[in-house]
Structure formats: C-alpha cells, structure tokens
Design a binder for these strands. Structure first.
Lengths: 229, 229
DNA sequence: CGACCATTTGATATGGATCAAGCGATGTGG
DNA sequence: CCACATCGCTTGATCCATATCAAATGGTCG
C-alpha cells in the first residue's frame, strides 16, 4: 500500500467539490488495509487543501490535477515548495503540523488518508513502515535537488525546471505546464519577468519551442543539458 | 535506539584515524540492539567520510567534531547541503547511494552503523522503524528550511545561518563556528566576500560581535530576528 | 622571522529585480 | 456579435545587490 497503484485503485466516495477544510469524515470502513481508509476529495482551482500550521492529520495522494505547496514569508514573498502531479503523495513532510500550505493549481482529485491510521498500520506491518520511510526519503531527495536548483543562474534554474517537468511527463519532450509563470517564478526564486525572458531566450536559440504559453516542446535536449550546468 | 543518548552511550572500538573509505568491519557483536552494532571511527580535518555516488551502506552519528555534506557541480561550484554537529545523524538521506559527499570539517569521531542492520532491526521493532522515519522527516524539514534561506537576501541568509547555529549551540548567544567562511558561503549560496562583508556590517550595527573570526556573539537578537525577514 | 592561509576591504562589473508599458487571449455585458 | 475589461504573459528601460577581480591585513606554524 502507500504505493501509487494500490492506493489509486481505491478511489471511492467522493466527498464532493466545494468541501473545504473539511477533512474526510471517518465514515469509511476501517478495514485492515490502507486503501479501505482512503477517501477521495475534490478541490477546484486555487482552493486550499490545507494551511501551514494546521495539524497534519492526513496524508494525500493526487489522483488527477496538480497541487502546489508553498509558504508565505513575512514580507509577502511566496516560496513554492513543490508541485505534485497525479500519483504523487504529499502532506507527510512534517511531524505534528504542516510546514507548508497546499492548494490545487487546477481542479484536482485527491485521496486522503488519516495519518494515524497509516501510522498504526505501519506499527503492525513493517512493509508499510518501510514504504512510509521510503516516500519521505524520496521527498527529501527531491527537496535537496531543489536546493541545488536555487543556487544556479536564472537560465539554469529554468532549464532545470523544464527538464524536471519533462521527466515527470508522459512524453518527455513535450511539457504541458499546469502552473502559471508566477508559480514557476516562486518555485525557482525568480521573478515572473525573468522566467518569461529566459523562456523567450531559449526559444530564440531553438532549444525549446513555446507553441502556447502553457506548452513547451524541448527541441534540443543536448543544448538544454549543457545549459543545466 | 537511534536516539542520540542511546547511541552515544555505546561508543567503543575506535577503528583509528587514517582508516579511509574503510567502513567498519563487521566484527562487533550483533546483539539485539543497535548500539551493539555501532562502530566508532575517527576522521581528521578535511578527510572524506564517503563520496557522492558510493553505496550508502552505513548510517552515521557524530560523537564529536563537525561534518559537512556537499556536492560539486559540473562547473566546480560546491554546494554544502548541511553541517552536522555532535548528536546529529547523517548519511540516511538517500536510498541506494549517497546523494552528497561527506567530510570532516574538524577532527571528528563518528559512530557508524550498518544500514542493513538498522533496516533489519526496524523490520522487527516498530519503534526503530518509527524513529528511522522520524529522523528522515526531521532532515526533510531541515532541508526545506534551507530552501527558504536560499531565496532570501544575503543579509537574511547570513542572519538565518547565525540564528540556526545559535539554536544548535549550548550558549545560544555565542556561536563557535567550526567552519570556514568558504564553507558558510557554499552553504548559503553566496561568495566568501559577501559573507565577510555582511558579518562586518552586522558588527558595525552592533547586532553581533566578532571577537575572533570563528566566534560570533549575538548582541541583539531582536534586531537579528527583524533582519531575518 | 617569514611563508602561508583565511579573512577582510576596496573598486568595478553584471545578472536579475524593479518599474512600466504593451500585447494577446478569454470572458462578460450591452 | 461586438466592444471592452481583465488576466496572464511578454518586452523594454533602468537600478541595485551581489559577484568578480584585486589587494591589504591578520593569524598560525615551521
């Protein structure tokens, strides 16, 4: 369990769009396996899934749509921690409370699992425990790569982002971006203008093609990899 | 087990300074608890503990000294991932192989535990499994805070670094820095000059005092916190 | 004492931010 | 169905924080 396939196979009982801040009711049969405890929830564009500082009582896995996690700094700057795509799990970052807020970027369907149930199951089933650890370790690795992105030049960051998204996409030469330029900028620690200019520049050098602002075709992987430092 | 106190209490069998790349021999009694499986190793200043890409067969915990983990980018830039102080565990970041290299900053004594032994124990003992997860989750949180540092201004980064170090020190108003300015710069994604100038500036404004280059006294926490954004 | 290394300080250059305006797509009301 | 407002994105001009290049200072060890 806790893997994409297993959990994905269990979607049922939509709690319905528009249910906000209302974590799933405990009305599901608490069978012996995790999937029986998962509830599906839907969130519309820009709807909050949870807020920073809230008790982290649930784990989440994306069924469809995209989610961003973020933090607002004291001076209003927003840092996006991650983008989560279908199959990705999120919300298990912290201990007692969420370190980041989470919002749907586009309408999203999400599986929600009670944290305590998973933890309890993990206590009995060492496989579950191991997977819990593995998911967290993978997330750790992702954040470490994010750190490496943030020390690079603007061009390297944008290229790194495109390559990352391409890797996660079906066709890894064409990326459909669910997020806005502002989201990308806040993820990369750049301004929207710099992101835009960089994309334009990459298109000028024929490394990429931008048929529509949300769709990017990687034309020259070699060149991009080179620019990735 | 896996906690600082338990493991710390078990240091024995120094494999000796100068043993390089030689993970501990499996000569220790593999009793039922982790501490019986821990070997102590010593590393001198700048000595490599493990390299990026090596199989991650061991977990480490610092007994004394300081360790830095880092990555060298293609163009020679070095990014420091973390500084580990006595009591801290490291090396459990990744799955199969180390994502970062690790070096002793100052002569260090480190407890080394076979990864497979811990994992095996975790399979039987759910407490161990839970702690394994907890340590990884805490590390994840630390890296997330590092990300937040990296999007800030130079002054905010330096102040954030000082506050972080102060928090980890005994006397949280006086910090003894085991690492060089270059290490700090590579941790913060700045140049050595900018770090130096920023410290000088903070000293000028009486927020800190720098009796020697490796010792920093926090004079005005309120001012520092304000500068931390 | 003299050499070496870490750190600081100074002068200048530059990448990306900021401020500002234009453009194209999408949607809304008349 | 068209006029217009809105929103997301791009493009342009200028500014500034930090990098870069260079040199001076200070501390440590043989």
């Amino acid at each position: 369990m806790l893997t994409q396939t297993t959990i994905n196979g269990s979607s049922r009982q939509m709690l319905g769009k528009g249910v906000r801040r209302g974590p799933p009711i405990d009305c599901l049969p608490s069978g012996g396996s995790i999937e029986l405890m998962a509830a599906s929830m839907s969130f519309s564009r820009n709807e909050e899934i949870y807020a920073e500082g809230e008790p982290a009582d649930y784990f989440y896995q994306i069924v469809s749509g995209t989610v961003r996690t973020y933090k607002i700094l004291a001076d209003g700057r927003r840092q996006i921690g991650a983008f989560y795509l279908p199959g990705d799990m999120f919300g298990l970052e912290s201990a007692e409370e969420h370190a980041f807020s989470a919002e749907a970027i586009a309408d999203a369907k999400v599986l929600v699992i009670k944290r305590s149930a998973v933890v309890a199951l993990a206590q009995r089933d060492s496989d579950v425990a191991h997977q819990l650890w593995a998911v967290t370790a993978r997330e750790l690795q992702r954040v470490q790569e994010h750190v490496l992105l943030l020390i690079k030049t603007a061009q390297e960051r944008v290229v790194g982002f495109l390559l990352e998204m391409a890797e996660r996409a079906r066709d890894d030469n064409e990326v459909e971006l669910p997020m806005s330029r502002q989201d990308i900028a806040d993820y990369l620690g750049l301004t929207i203008e710099t992101v835009s200019r960089t994309l334009t520049h990459l298109a000028t050098t024929a490394a990429i093609e931008v048929p529509t602002s949300r769709r990017i075709v990687l034309r020259n992987r070699a060149a991009l990899s080179r620019l990735n430092a």
